[in-house]
């Protein structure tokens, strides 16, 4: 299925929120100012999802195990609905993520939240990932095969 540009952006945003540290997300959210009026359509509630892998890495799916996950759906006063589905059991993180998802469907809000919340999260994630990659890269080896000579 091909998604629209908007849907892709929304997907990426929801992923960023899900991967963010709950502490940083709450901090940035509080700094953004007062919460908009909203109703909780569902949750936040914790349950599980079954994680799937593929046989051989690329074959048919199989069930690997479960993971805790928390979801929330919020409705803004204007009827916009926001969703969140985040690994772990942090209810507040899911609630905020759903609110952010709802707000970001409005262009003007998106701009404000992009600067105040999404960008800092993105920067933090990139930093964290870079450290991980670089530390792993330092353990890269070149094995030399010792040639078994004939003479």
């Amino acid at each position: 299925m091909t998604l629209t540009e908007q849907q892709n952006a929304r997907r990426a945003r929801m992923g960023l929120l899900a991967r963010s540290s709950a502490r940083q997300l709450v901090e940035l959210w509080v700094k953004l100012g007062e919460e908009p009026e909203h109703s909780l359509l569902r949750g936040p509630e914790t349950g599980s999802i079954t994680l799937r892998g593929r046989m051989g890495g690329g074959g048919a799916p199989f069930n690997l195990g479960e993971a805790t996950v928390t979801r929330a759906a919020v409705g803004l006063a204007d009827g916009t609905v926001g969703h969140a589905m985040v690994l772990g059991r942090d209810l507040e993180k899911a609630r905020i993520a759903a609110l952010v998802d709802a707000l970001c469907q409005d262009e003007r809000e998106l701009e404000r939240i992009e600067g105040g919340l999404l960008t800092p999260l993105r920067v933090a994630e990139a930093d964290c990932e870079r450290v991980r990659r670089e530390q792993t890269a330092a353990t890269k080896v070149d094995f030399f095969t010792v040639v078994r000579g004939e003479d």
Partner: peptide, 12 residues
Amino acid sequence: MNADMQAYAGGF
């Protein structure tokens, strides 16, 4: 209530 919101209402 629009159709979109109707989907979210009416549960337990």
